[in-house]
Design a protein around this nucleic acid. Sequence first.
DNA 1: ATTGAGATTTAGACTAACTCTAAATCGTAG
DNA 2: CTACGATTTAGAGTTAGTCTAAATCTCAAT
Lengths: 134, 134
Amino acid sequence: MPKLIKTETGEKLTRQREAVLGVIREREDHPTANDIFEAARRRLPGISYATVYNSLRFLKEAGLVHEIKFGDSASRYDRETDRHDHALCSQCGKLVDFDLPQAAELMKAAARRSKFKPESVHLTLKGVCPDCCK
Amino acid sequence: MPKLIKTETGEKLTRQREAVLGVIREREDHPTANDIFEAARRRLPGISYATVYNSLRFLKEAGLVHEIKFGDSASRYDRETDRHDHALCSQCGKLVDFDLPQAAELMKAAARRSKFKPESVHLTLKGVCPDCCK
DNA sequence: ATTGAGATTTAGACTAACTCTAAATCGTAG
DNA sequence: CTACGATTTAGAGTTAGTCTAAATCTCAAT
């Protein structure tokens, strides 16, 4: 019996990678690499900063986590790997996932306009979140 | 007659700011701050890096240029300041503007799903540009 | 059980893209 | 012409992430 669990495609899920994945999976929000580093260090005290980045790249490539990059500041990581969109609160910075069911049509419409062969679409809504609305 | 032209809202368009704006307006593409710095230096040899950044912030706040930030690397600047969307080529990195006429409805749909009070929507299409399709 | 090749992890140096700071300079109101 | 606030400048600092090379780990073959 191998010590390391493997992903479906046979890659090694080392202790460090498991810790990083665990951190992302147990959080509802969208932590930055640094948030993940700090949380991972609680599980695996010796883990290094570089390893968190290596693991994030690995997990991303394995399709186990999703990276979200808005212009401002650091990348955020998302346990939700299916296609989805994001709403960003202009007051508090909260980032919320949602899905627009018409995404497939949208992609076609965008492809027609831009003349690109479409691969994916992503929609960002900026606005005020329910909490900040009060 | 004042030496410095002013914007509609009365702020000063200094020589440096004019040079930066000129660079952005004469280009069809979406230059990075560094591209702009290099081109601006050809017009105004002494201009500093910091001033290009200051000017970009100023012009952005004055609504004269638009900043586009994709996750990867540097911000790009756009002379088109009306609402619009972007298509990004996954092969060559080319960035193209287009506009989806249904944007207003889209924003409402996204607001319903996310429960946010909407302010703006932006759509990103990833795909292959016409040139790279061949 | 040992060994060795390759994968992985580590610390810390390095980089890119900005941002900040404090001093110098500029432009305009008086 | 002068003074004051706004702007510009050079260069130091910051942030987020990447790179490097040495150490360590894992697995498979002895």
